[in-house]
């Protein structure tokens, strides 16, 4: 699994179901980050040259490599805009989220 996905998490109702000590399964996500976004990155597949600069510099690891162009893992993208700012071809635009 390249990226963990959100899992259903039920808070323990009995003390025996709590982890023994403060340790838990690596990569266990109970929550998404999409709600943080005001703007979302939109990739123009035509303009993208697949140089992967955005992939390298994304603080959240939400740029997905593709055959010909990149795409975005929106569940965990926070909309910081680093990808759009670093894109040498202006292939990523930040578009206002509509909720």
């Amino acid at each position: 699994m390249n990226r963990p996905v959100k899992q259903e998490y039920n808070r323990p109702t009995h003390i025996k179901d709590f982890p023994v000590g403060p340790q838990f399964d690596a990569g266990h996500l109970a929550d998404e980050n999409a709600g943080w976004r005001t703007f979302k990155p939109v990739v123009d597949a035509e303009k993208c040259i697949n140089c992967l600069i955005c992939y390298l510099v994304c603080p959240d690891g939400t740029i997905i490599k593709g055959e010909n162009h990149v795409s975005v893992a929106y569940d965990y993208c926070k909309g910081c805009g680093v990808c759009a700012n670093e894109c040498p071809k202006d292939a990523i635009s930040m578009v206002k989220e509509e909720r």
Partner: peptide, 21 residues
Amino acid sequence: ENPKNMGFSSQPIDNTEFKYQ
């Protein structure tokens, strides 16, 4: 085999349970 994230932070909703343990 079973990687762990250890020594994590708890929120007020479950800190007491760890102290009880």
